[in-house]
Design a protein around this nucleic acid. Sequence first.
DNA 1: CTGAAAGCGCTTACAG
DNA 2: CTGAAAGCGCTTACAG
Lengths: 334, 334
Amino acid sequence: MNKVTMEDVAKHADVSKSTVSQYINGRYEYMSKKTKQRVEESIEELNYSVNIVAKSLKQKRTFTIGVIVANIIHNFSTQVIRAVEDVCNKKNIHVIVCNADDDPEKEQTYIELLLAKQIDGLIVFPIDGNIEYYKKLYKAAYPIVFVDRKIEQLPIDTFLLNNEGASEMAVDHFVSKGYREIGFVSSSLTNVTPRIERLEGFKKALVKHNVEVNKDYIISCKVKNIRTELKKMLLSVDRGPKAILASNDLSLIETLKFLNQNNLSIPHDVALIGIDDVPFSDIIVPSLTTVAQPSYVIGENAASKLLDIINNRQKKRSGNIYRFDGELISRNSC
Amino acid sequence: MNKVTMEDVAKHADVSKSTVSQYINGRYEYMSKKTKQRVEESIEELNYSVNIVAKSLKQKRTFTIGVIVANIIHNFSTQVIRAVEDVCNKKNIHVIVCNADDDPEKEQTYIELLLAKQIDGLIVFPIDGNIEYYKKLYKAAYPIVFVDRKIEQLPIDTFLLNNEGASEMAVDHFVSKGYREIGFVSSSLTNVTPRIERLEGFKKALVKHNVEVNKDYIISCKVKNIRTELKKMLLSVDRGPKAILASNDLSLIETLKFLNQNNLSIPHDVALIGIDDVPFSDIIVPSLTTVAQPSYVIGENAASKLLDIINNRQKKRSGNIYRFDGELISRNSC
DNA sequence: CTGAAAGCGCTTACAG
DNA sequence: CTGAAAGCGCTTACAG
């Protein structure tokens, strides 16, 4: 395929490699019409295309960034990736996606491989276990932004949902519909930002509405155990909650499955709101009321910021936290 | 970050670059214990990692492959990508994913960019409009495999569903449940393999069961028009079909939406089977009977084959068509 | 067992 | 306006 090099073009056009390079990079200022045309024709005839690897080595830029998602299983991850790719593709930047699978070691291996490939920057959904490693990257002034989770110790730009606000929206909606016995289901085991903040927002919102926080109504466990916990909460306790806030897509799905399997009707027996829209919320019966994350917008912003940082390495970095509000989409499950 | 080079390590260990390179690449045969240890320590101390861009330029391998999906909107695409990434990551090969969005020009731009990046091989969900371009790649002996769709003219290894068999499974299931008035809904506009073959398989299966093929029961149009067409088919015609085979995930979703919106109960009013499992088929009520594609297996096989081809460039290529059988998952929609 | 040298295919100051 | 030369950071025959 790509056997023809700049040298070949130069010979064919009877000019120097330098000139061909100038042409390729659109620096026509000092180029005679004749030369320009000869080069143009030669490139056409030989079907030349530049070797980006060689170019990258020289320029120390690879025109590629990496995205490391904590876990690609979440809808949110997929949508963020899509947005990042859209933003980057527009600027002819390639994106390499790695799924850390919530495993710090896996993540570190990926980061090292990406760095060895000299990628220009990194978008990371950070994992608790790798803080020291991020610190190294930060100190080396490596272009990096975080998504979904923040790491307190590091002034790295971070893009995430207004998590407390999202919970508040859901609780407000429940209360406005007359529900005061509200449960909370979370699938995250580890101490990640979304889980902490959504639970916190949930509690605050209850307090705001003068509802006492009932610990028996809060589930936080592995995905596969959610249904067992729901059974305890809804079927064993004397009076369980009449409404459930599922804190993300996976816990929403588990809750749905549980309710369906136990013939509990939504919203009659239990009302349901999920944080994180799921692709089928509009398709099923009853349709699901959710607080949708602006995932695409979050991804766009993170990508734009990263590209900015890459293009202005010198500028000192701000380490801002960018919050994006969720949107309550009222459908039929509450 | 990666400022430290092989040269630095060489100086620090007081050996030559050649020796460091040998060490990095695990060629210890002729290396004295002492040298080996000194290099090892220096690498450790300087925190050196190899520059893959330089390595790639020299070796003419980038340890990266590209995947160009026709349209990432399909569940199938996502799953194939996941499988490809799993296979490649195990061998430290990176994957760059591009979404052609069913646009031949977009696809060509991506392919050119990927080639300029010197990627080692390509997995493509081919689009009708780019046959000439694939031919060029083929002639240049560029490592490439196809997924999901075949291009008759080119002997390129292709991995796809046994589409006719999938339709047959669905029809058999309908018939076994007593349905003989069966509709077919397809979302693909263009003449792509899955659409053609699934429709063909559908017709053949009807014939096999001595059911006459009724053209009014076959819908093939843009996704956004499916519901209008369904309305004509189900609500305007005197006697519409009592069962519907949705030929892929998107048409399944549209059909579901239509049935729900019109309060048609599944399977009582209309039985439903979809080719292509959707993630929520098990979650909703009624759960959906589908013919699941072995998407992950297809992706795994395509990736393995591509890596094989890359590692044995000399071998002449077979151009086999690899068919994978779907699996009927009987749930409650039929 | 180890090192000097050439070269992968570009870009970029600099000279003329 | 154009070209010769150096260099990006590796690998790889080859010499010793």
